[in-house]
Nucleic acid binder design. Structure first.
Length: 728
DNA sequence: AGCACGCCGACT
DNA sequence: GTCGGCGTGCTC
């Protein structure tokens, strides 16, 4: 405790110089003797002198706790002076306490050096850095800034975000040199970007080093966009070629590019398109499938600047791309783009933060357009990149609706449990190629409703929603728990509910019996097929698991509308349309005889949008509606979940921004966060809503309240989620 | 978050 | 008179 920048810890010999202990210090002396005996037994390296040049290392410790979300200063021993550069991984002693002028206790924890300083503003004495793990500067100033911004936006701690952003060290990969960087490639030809009136201009702007920002309603089909150009026969993923060209154009301008996609199969498609366009060595793919070491090797190639483009799944949103010129997200409505770890950042939003920070171009694309994208268009921050109606009509399959009440009137259709129109479309299409059948995912059970009039099934005692519970699917109230085996619809008297999701496997069996000569394949949870051959087959898949058919599907049957649309979720309509478009986008164009049958009420907006293939119009309307209702993404929301008492406690501590709404609390089902096998306590959730532009204030307030709660230990900690995905 | 210090009840 | 409850505060 003095003014010198670095008193440093006393050397081992200094204990001998201690004054004789008074009687009151006897106990302390015994403890000290024990300590000394222990340190003699395990000899320690004697503390080195502190370096004179920039003797202070500011460190971020890798501990998640919200309450210690701050930097700590350490002194730099001379022998670590060279290597302890900003960005390196270090180990430091943390949590020690001063006893008799010495540090006692505390453990070694990991961290990163964020800066070297002339002096510290910490009034106490500094502990020395214990260890520098390597000279690799993994946490660049830009990455640190990004992590800080993400932590702030999501009311999380820097350490939490660092854990997502910087992969664990792998010695072997780090010891290897990264390849020499290749020179920037030539500008690509526009390829299938020619399908969009503004496509070539967008590509040219990227090539010129400009930073256009676009919301891209991708056209289905369009070929792989290989070297030949717009059309090499059919098939499928024109979007992959288009994304690849955007990346190539950005590289051609001498800048880096980053693309995040929802799942590994989409990454593989883009990876392939890039290989075809640019050859090897100009990009890397980052997905979980490569394993930690290879992943780290690729991450280092980016970090060291030897590769300038990356495509990957959500964790790639933090990839250290140098001189970022383009960020792109594909299918940004897919919830897999939201990280599963605190503070749950979403790839789209992280990439937008990066684009703003770096002045980079933005490309948010998908067959569907999200409401979030529509909001970017509405404010004029991004421009639409869409095909003309004539092009849409050419590229999309023919979509027909069939009512759910359309009874099958022939035996084959009944056996397959298909409406007769769907049955005849399938039978006809199977002569020409594979047919995709999209079925609901198990566990995607919507609220129960009367099979005839669709009135919600409610408890006769408390009017709570009925649900199916247990292995025997007993009908129970979700609120009071009473069972009601003899339910009858109070409106029409029907005694049947629709709810049971017939699993993909059983649907496949039934279809197999109905079409005995055709092979049936399934793709869903458990086993996901990437592709199917261009041959007659029934392909039964759950949403998101549809394989790509090499020649395009001859037809698709979308049988899951009631389940998708029936979900008690604000995003049900948007999400349903997105899943339908993604399935329908795998079908041949109308010109090539491709058709889609969707089993749903044709009056519903998502159904109409699919029939007209109008994702942009749908998103725009949806956005307006949300704006009127003060729903996200126009207003911003956060959810707070925990025991009733802890939620109440947090509400009492929080200083909400002006005009904030508190919605709830409402009871929520447990099972959400952690897997506490023990007692499942009642959980409640409140939604906090603020006006547009007040999201940052809300995040700050939430973080402060959470810190106060943690420090006071006034209640069990709550779980906070900014931009929650599931808001009923 | 850990971890230790510190000030009030039931026991040898 | 002690052992131990967890309230409070700190960690470079």
């Amino acid at each position: 405790m003095n003014g010198t920048p670095d008193p440093g810890p006393p050397g081992p010999g200094s204990a001998a110089a201690d004054p004789a202990p008074t009687a009151g210090e006897q106990l302390e002396l015994v403890r000290l003797e024990l300590k000394k005996a222990r340190s003699r037994a395990k000899p320690r390296v004697s503390p080195k002198a502190t370096t004179r040049h920039l003797p202070v290392a500011r460190v971020v410790v890798n501990k998640g706790a919200l309450v210690i979300d701050q930097f700590f200063d350490y002194s730099v021993p001379v022998d670590l002076d060279e290597i302890a550069q900003p960005g390196v991984r270090v180990r430091v002693r943390f949590g020690a306490r001063m006893v008799d002028g010495r540090r006692e206790g505390g453990g070694l924890i990991d961290g990163f050096v964020v800066a070297r300083l002339e002096r510290s503003d910490y009034p106490g004495s500094l502990a020395p850095l214990s260890q520098v793990l390597s000279a690799e500067r993994v946490l660049s100033p830009e990455l640190l800034r990004l992590c800080r911004a993400v932590a702030d936006r999501y009311a999380g701690s820097l350490a939490d975000v660092l854990q997502l952003a910087v992969p664990p060290k792998r010695n072997r990969a780090e010891a290897e040199p990264s390849p020499e960087p290749l020179p920037a490639p030539a500008r690509p030809e526009p390829g299938s970007w020619a399908r969009y009136p503004l496509g070539e201009a967008f590509l040219a702007a990227l090539g010129d080093g400009e930073s256009p920002r676009a919301v891209w309603a991708a056209l289905p089909g369009g070929g792989w966009g290989g070297a030949g150009g717009a059309d090499a026969g059919w098939v499928g993923a024109g979007w992959a070629g288009e994304l690849a060209r955007a990346v190539a154009a950005t590289l051609a301008s001498g800048r880096g590019a980053l693309v995040v996609l929802p799942e590994g199969r989409a990454v593989a498609q883009l990876d392939l398109a890039l290989l075809e366009l640019l050859g090897a060595g100009r990009h890397v793919a980052l997905t979980a499938e490569h394993g930690p070491e290879e992943r780290y090797r690729r991450w280092l190639a980016l970090s060291r600047g030897s590769v300038r483009a990356v495509v990957g799944t959500r964790a790639a949103m933090f990839a250290p791309v140098a001189d970022l010129g383009l960020v792109a997200v594909w299918d940004d409505g897919d919830d897999r783009l939201s990280d599963l770890n605190a503070p749950f950042p979403h790839a789209r939003d992280v990439l937008l933060l990066r684009a703003v920070e770096a002045g980079a171009a933005v490309l948010i694309g998908g067959l569907a357009v999200t409401v979030e994208s529509a909001q970017l268009l509405h404010t004029g921050w991004a421009r639409p990149l869409v095909g003309e109606r004539s092009e849409v009509r050419r590229a999309a399959p023919l979509v027909r609706t069939v009512s759910e009440r359309d009874q099958a009137n022939d035996a084959g259709a009944r056996a397959a449990r298909l409406p007769s129109h769907a049955w005849s479309v399938a039978r006809e299409a199977l002569a020409r190629g594979p047919v995709l059948v999209q079925v609901p995912r198990r566990g995607y059970v919507p609220r129960l409703a009367c099979v005839r009039c669709r009135e919600r099934a409610r408890c006769r005692h408390c009017a709570g929603p009925l649900e199916l519970r247990g292995a025997e699917d007993a009908l129970c109230c979700d609120w009071c728990g009473r069972s009601d085996p003899d339910w009858r619809c109070p409106e029409c008297g029907a005694d049947r509910l629709r709810a049971q999701v017939v699993g993909a496997r059983r649907t496949a069996e039934e279809l197999g019996r109905a079409f005995p000569l055709v092979p049936v394949r399934t793709s869903g949870r458990g086993e996901v097929l990437a592709t199917v051959p261009d041959a007659p087959a029934l392909v039964v898949a759950t949403p998101g698991a549809e394989p790509v058919a090499e020649g395009g599907y001859a037809a698709a049957l979308l049988l899951d509308g009631w389940a998708l649309l029936g979900r008690p979720d604000l995003r049900a309509g948007e999400d349903t349309l997105r899943r339908w478009l993604n399935a329908a986008g795998l079908v041949r164009s109308r010109e090539q005889g491709g058709s889609v049958v969707v089993v749903a009420d044709e009056g519903l907006r998502p159904v109409q949008a699919l029939v007209r293939w109008d994702p942009s119009g749908f998103a725009g309307t949806e956005r307006e509606e949300r704006a009127e209702l003060h729903f996200p993404p126009v207003s911003r929301m956060a959810s707070v979940t925990g025991t009733p008492a802890s939620v109440q406690d947090l509400l009492s501590l929080i200083r909400l921004p002006a005009g904030a709404d508190v919605l709830g609390p409402v009871a929520v089902r447990g099972g959400g966060g952690r897997a506490d096998a023990g007692e499942r306590e009642e959980q409640e959730r409140v939604l906090l809503r603020v006006d547009p532009g007040r999201g940052a204030e809300l995040a700050t307030a939430l973080k402060a309240a959470q810190v106060a709660q943690l420090v006071r230990r006034s209640a069990e900690p709550v779980r906070v989620r900014i931009d929650p995905l599931d808001i009923g």
